[in-house]
């Protein structure tokens, strides 16, 4: 069913945008290669189920873990370099990972990999089951992120993002929390990759190429980096718009690129960030309603 497929794509995009938001929004670490971790998760899950015979229920967290291991390594590297360096490095990682998928025999090389449909307690997953799984994962990740700003982790990340040296001088080890954010963000991206692989039934390296990373970043930026629900809004808008407007799907990269430039110039806080035009409108409506009483 067409609506189900669109809903699944939205569910995948929301998970990716939320996971990127943990790293780039909350920890303030620019990542332009998020699709690499999505891909690592997808390939891990595909290999574990198709070649090693693992059940999907185990392959799903394993995909997250493998992506997180690479993510933590990237995090350890990120604390040694400046932010602009990190942005470029993450682009490089995306290309390297895609190249490995494309040329290494184990990963199906240019032929890609067929992925079996998940079976859970004898139930073979169709799109409905995939959708239910995505709803559950989205709720779990959303609850985590909603709790984040008021948690100790969120507080440390806020300090590090705002004034790293000041935070360090007050006893917060910035490296510790940055690496942690990388670990969690890439774990979620890896699990999302697993769901994607089993939903599609077939994956190839181009599914996780650089443009996918740009798309995910665009979603988070559009909704509002560092906000709790902004990336969800961005994911919905950018996943639906190619379905609704033909030109968006024809000129996808142009739309993403233009959007990034415009948002950075006019609404760097995103659609629902502090003092964004949407929020001002909303507050305006509210106070006018009050004034009319």
């Amino acid at each position: 069913m067409y609506e189900q497929v669109v809903a699944i794509n939205i569910g995948l995009a929301m998970l990716l945008a939320m996971s990127l938001n943990i790293i780039t929004g909350f920890a303030g670490q620019p990542t332009l290669g998020h699709a690499a971790f999505y891909g690592i998760g997808a390939y891990t899950s595909a290999l574990l189920t198709a070649k090693a015979g693992w059940p999907f229920l185990l392959a799903l967290p394993a995909a997250g873990l493998v992506a997180a291991v690479v993510g933590v390594l990237l995090g350890l590297f990120s604390v040694r370099v400046r932010e602009d360096f990190l942005a470029v490095t993450t682009i490089g990682i995306n290309f390297v990972v895609v190249a490995i998928f494309q040329y290494v025999e184990l990963f199906g090389a240019s032929l890609g990999l067929a992925v079996p449909k998940p079976v859970l307690f004898g139930l073979r997953f169709g799109n409905t089951e995939i959708l239910i799984l995505l709803v559950i994962l989205n709720i779990l990740v959303y609850l985590f992120i909603r709790h984040l700003p008021t948690s100790w982790l969120g507080l440390a990340l806020g300090g590090v993002r705002n004034e790293e040296d000041a935070a360090a001088s007050l006893g917060v080890n910035p490296d510790h929390y940055k690496v942690f954010a990388f670990g969690i963000g890439t774990f979620i991206a890896g699990m999302t990759g697993s769901v994607y692989a089993h939903f599609m039934g077939f994956i190839s390296s181009s599914d996780f190429a650089f443009p996918v990373s740009v798309g995910v970043l665009s979603m988070a930026v559009l909704g509002g980096l560092g906000t709790v629900s902004g990336p969800l809004l961005g994911a919905v808008i950018l996943t639906l718009s190619p379905e609704v407007f033909r030109f968006v799907s024809d000129y996808r990269m142009l739309v993403y690129g233009g959007l990034l430039v415009l948002m950075m110039r006019f609404q760097p806080q995103g659609l629902i960030g502090d003092d964004s035009f949407l929020r001002r409108k909303w507050i305006g409506l509210f106070s006018r309603g009050k004034g009319g009483e």
Binding site: L155, G159, R161, A166, V172
Partner: peptide, 18 residues
């Protein structure tokens, strides 16, 4: 160098981090 996006209470909480 206060933590601009954080509230006064949160700034103080980070001050007492250790």
């Amino acid at each position: 160098r206060v933590f601009g996006e954080l509230t006064v209470a949160e700034n103080l909480r980070i001050g007492g981090w250790v």
